[in-house]
Design a protein around this nucleic acid. Sequence first.
DNA 1: TTCCGGAAAATGCCTCGAGG
DNA 2: CCTCGAGGCATTTTCCGGAA
Length: 607
Amino acid sequence: MAPPRKSENKQGVKPGSTQNQVRWTRTEMEHALNSMRQRLAPQITDRALLQQYLEVDNLDVDRAVNRWQTHRARILAGAAPPPSDSSSSSSSDSDGEDDGEGVDEGGIFEGMQANAIAERFNANIEQERRDAALAFRLEIEDSSVGYVVLSPSQAIFFLYICGWDLGVALSRWNSTSLKESFLLLGEFDRMRKPLHREIDVSDEVTLLAQDERLATFINITGRPDWYSLRERLVEADWNLIEAVAAWFRPGVRPERPSSTGNGPGIRVDVNLRELDWPADGDCDAAEGTVMDEGWGQEPNYFAPDNPFPNPPNPVKENPVAATTKPRGTKPIDGRERRNGFLIHIDSSQARETAQIGIRNPELFLIEWICKGKYWYNRFKHNKLGFPEYEAAQNIPPRANPLPEFDWKNQDHINLLNNWRRQVTNRATGYNTRQGSQLWSQEEIDFLISLTEELFQEAKREFKDKTEAELLPLVITNKVKEDWQRRFNAKFTGTIQPGSDKERIDRKSSALMTQRGRIRILVDKYKVTEDKQWFKRQENKKEKAKAKVKVGEKRKRDSSQEVKRESSQEVEEITQGEFESTIATAASDGGESGGEEEEQANDADDEE
DNA sequence: TTCCGGAAAATGCCTCGAGG
DNA sequence: CCTCGAGGCATTTTCCGGAA
């Protein structure tokens, strides 16, 4: 099914197409392109061509992918170009989804045939990528700045940066100065440094660097047998660039793990079936491409002049995230978990969420490298059914089948996205933004005073109006800006009770949200109340009461409360819930060890 | 026991469409 | 054009079962 078009009157409307009034926004097209690339990976792609397929299928990624794969298979089979565009070829296709259905393909198959990547299509994906590197080098030599001759690793890494999309790579190369292009590649120079051959479990930094390089190597080659790549890296003393060059020529032979602890050494598909091992011969680089005489020499460094050769660059597009980049281990859910590195899904797309109406089963699987090993996790949910997965795993059907995961159901999409966020966070330690900070009483008071002040001003300015007529106050953007400025001037950098971290800036939107959660502002100044939030507050109170009544003995000890410096305690106290807190503290005295104590209490109860 | 990870609640932040 | 408000998004916390 085509995705819903929520916003047809935005910039996506183009008067051009007549018979096809359905258009889409730039964002929708980007989502579709990303999904399509994810589903085609590790094949090579070309952005313009992908776009053509999506347009023919009205942004229906499912259909576009099917059509693409059908055409690709036809080209791989050496199919002679079909006589004309239409019926003869598509109607006899054996795969279930027929791609015709009266849609005028508009010469789209010819478009693929004419595209530079078609020449490089190969059933052997590794070879397809090597050939794409050659195509990239040749294109660059032909272009106006033709005096550049790339080495294999230069071409490979640049294509990798561009997600193995030849069109993207070429346009990016041509729109970037040579110096900058090499500077981009220079990001990888730090991965040349040899690392310890053996794994020293105590050396966190080395382990982290090894994981990053292994993950990158897997992503560059697209190989399923991760263990083979790891062995090759060890052989190269973990010099990734050397290993990549060796993969290009002569190739990396498959190697199965001999010891336990590494599993079978191969990745899984979205239904958790092991992928096929490549045959020895399939891993050798083909003569034609690599023996090409025109390749440039491998440089010692991609960017010898790089003023920042060593430090990993912070994420540029999101300055906030820079502070939360992986740095070894990081407490998540109150536990230290070592950071890992995603594979399969391009890290630049790691935060791409599932979109309603766009089927993309790839999102059910998250794979990563951590602690020198391959890890994965697959989305399941105890209230939803996954027929393909269940069939693949030989899970017996239920008496009452669960509703199937539905790509058109926003609730299901949200479940999936929540799960992906959680798993990605736990696996990588990477967050897209800083954790939010709880509001202190002083901040709340200041927010109240701002409203108060505005109200007094309004009364002075509109003397003829009654107070009731002035409420609720209109908060103009200008006022919001002013509030934000004053608020941050007062609090940013301070340490507020309930936290040991310095306050970061809050945006005016955050201030506006908080206003609806302050009783005085709601009652006295008619600010629209956040009903959901107040309802939860009520629930919380009741729960706390019930707890006090029922299990006087089953209480957390005080040391645990201190550990949880981040807060609810503070909140509760400011909301006037002294009783329960005090009762808690009193009931369990000065004993220690929450869990043990609970067990002790259970024992007591039994006796 | 320790670690992994599923599920959902809690809290805060932010976007975007409806409607003035 | 501007503001409001609903609801989506992100992170953290909590609880807990189960595997290693």
